[in-house]
């Protein structure tokens, strides 16, 4: 596999990888770094890559694992703390704009979900993967995925409802 075909294969997936990384790592820079690192890893393994039947699912799995490792490692924990500090400072200002920009609300709710639910919501509702594909990426069975997804969807809606009725009731 030469560079051109590799980029051809990987190009349609890289946005999905970036979005997945962004969902987990939150910071744009970290997400970009993560995508870059994972692509390099795949490139280093390009000869084995044709053995993997579904490159997209494989790329997403590697991205997921890389990001989870990043979150576990101390290095990124520092980043994470810095970032949440920043977010919480932003919060009061944000609340004034709340009515204008409700979509960010959902991002914030998503941030509070467990990693597994974040990932599954991302893969299903945003990337529109089949359950079979999600099962491969997450290394879980489909029933467990449905349960986790259902929890995520319900939590998001309930949190939104709470925000809505805040100040009314």
């Amino acid at each position: 596999m030469n560079q051109k075909t590799f980029i051809g294969v990987v190009n349609p997936v890289k946005d999905k990888m970036y979005r997945l990384a962004l969902r987990l790592l939150i910071s744009k820079d970290s997400a970009e770094d993560a995508t870059q690192e994972v692509l390099l890893k795949l490139w280093d393994r390009k000869n084995k890559l044709k053995d993997y039947a579904n490159i997209e699912a494989f790329a997403m799995t590697v991205t997921k694992n890389y990001c989870l490792d990043q979150l576990k490692s101390k290095q990124n924990n520092n980043l994470k703390i810095v970032h949440t500090n920043y977010e919480s400072q932003d919060r009061s200002a944000f609340e004034q704009l709340e009515t204008n920009d409700r979509l960010k609300e959902i991002s914030r709710i998503l941030e509070t979900l467990p990693e597994q639910q974040k990932l599954i919501f991302q893969l299903r509702d945003i990337e529109e993967y089949e359950y079979e594909e999600i099962a491969k990426v997450m290394n879980m069975n489909e029933t467990a995925i449905r349960v986790s997804l259902s929890r995520a969807r319900k939590t998001i809606r309930i949190e939104l409802l709470k925000k809505d009725s805040y100040g009314i009731k």
Partner: peptide
């Protein structure tokens, strides 16, 4: 809101070029 959010999120693109 949830469905709009999903559509909007799908529009996010990787900003850089791939460096191999």
């Amino acid at each position: 809101m949830i469905f709009n959010f999903s559509e909007e999120e799908k529009k996010i693109h990787h900003p850089g070029k791939i460096k191999l």
